[in-house]
């Protein structure tokens, strides 16, 4: 049994990083919990539960600040939740080694795609499908001191890719915010802050679908989950307040750094 004084600060850090990057907290939490001696499947189950807290805590502020695009979130959730149910079932069936390696590969793939893909979002014409889906909007950017208008694109590619992100979310208990942000940003052309904040909204519902599978499998230990949830929410609130004051580029650099370090660490442990 890992004591409270170790679990709580680790969870605060995970919540902070999760909110800052839009990744959902699990990406730091799972490596940290396994380092504390918790079995990776239990770590995944606790993580995906805590991801609901991170997501909801962060999203509550982003949505009320009108940065999150609810329609983008609602549309893409249809795909991520089905993926999460599939992914969680796979985790229950496979052994632990491949889970470590899969975790690391997902992180490094996200890092490479983001690094090579150029800088940020693009304005441009909407396709007919995305226009029909009403995937456009505007948000107040505190760092720029202006209201930024944008139009989403290529929802027909984004939707099936979000199903894949949902599988990874359910499989690894990370919320898959890293992939969701990438899909929003690079495929659907949304501004980074909208990508990050809308990812946060989607993560909560996606995580709920995965958590249901782990709950029934008996992998959720409330004694471990309680301090983790408290810490993650505290960290998420701090991260959320900082995010809205930073530039898009700062968020991107921070995101890249975290992905690289954790990706290498998990692959090494899985080998």
């Amino acid at each position: 049994m890992v004591p409270f004084h170790l679990l709580f600060p680790v969870a605060v850090l995970a919540g902070f990083v999760g909110a800052m990057s839009g990744m959902g907290g699990g990406i730091v939490l799972i490596p940290a919990l396994t380092l504390l001696g918790i079995d990776i499947k239990h770590a995944i189950a606790i993580s995906i539960l805590s991801v609901i807290a991170t997501s909801s805590g962060s999203a509550s502020a982003y949505v009320r600040d009108h940065i999150t695009n609810l329609k983008v979130g609602m549309f893409l959730e249809m795909f991520t939740i089905v993926g999460a149910l599939v992914g969680a079932r796979i985790t229950l069936a496979v052994s632990r080694g491949p889970l470590y390696i899969a975790f690391g590969v997902v992180l490094l793939s996200s890092w490479a795609a983001l690094l090579l893909a150029g800088k940020g979002w693009h304005t441009g014409e909407q396709d007919a499908v995305t226009r029909w889906l009403e995937l456009e909007g505007s948000y107040p950017d505190q760092a720029l001191g202006a209201v930024i208008e944008y139009k989403g694109r290529r929802a027909y590619f984004g939707a099936p890719m979000m199903f894949g992100a949902g599988i990874i979310a359910g499989l690894l208990g990370i919320g898959a915010g890293a992939l969701k942000v990438l899909i929003h940003d690079l495929v659907m052309g949304l501004p980074p802050k909208v990508s990050t904040t809308t990812s946060n909204l989607i993560i909560g519902v996606t995580a709920l679908a995965g958590t249901s599978v782990y709950l029934f499998a008996g992998l959720i230990n409330p004694g471990l989950a309680a301090p983790v949830i408290l810490g993650v929410v505290a960290g998420a609130f701090a991260g959320t307040r900082l995010l809205v004051r930073l530039s898009n580029q700062s968020v991107r650099y921070f995101f890249l750094f975290v992905l690289l370090i954790l990706g290498i660490e998990m692959i090494v442990r899985g080998l």
Binding site: A53, G57, I229, L230
Partner: peptide
């Protein structure tokens, strides 16, 4: 936006209070 944000905030706060 305000409604959704309030539900999320209220749910998380109530959950934290209980824990």
């Amino acid at each position: 936006d305000v409604l959704v944000g309030t539900i999320l905030l209220g749910g998380v706060l109530l959950s934290m209070i209980l824990v």
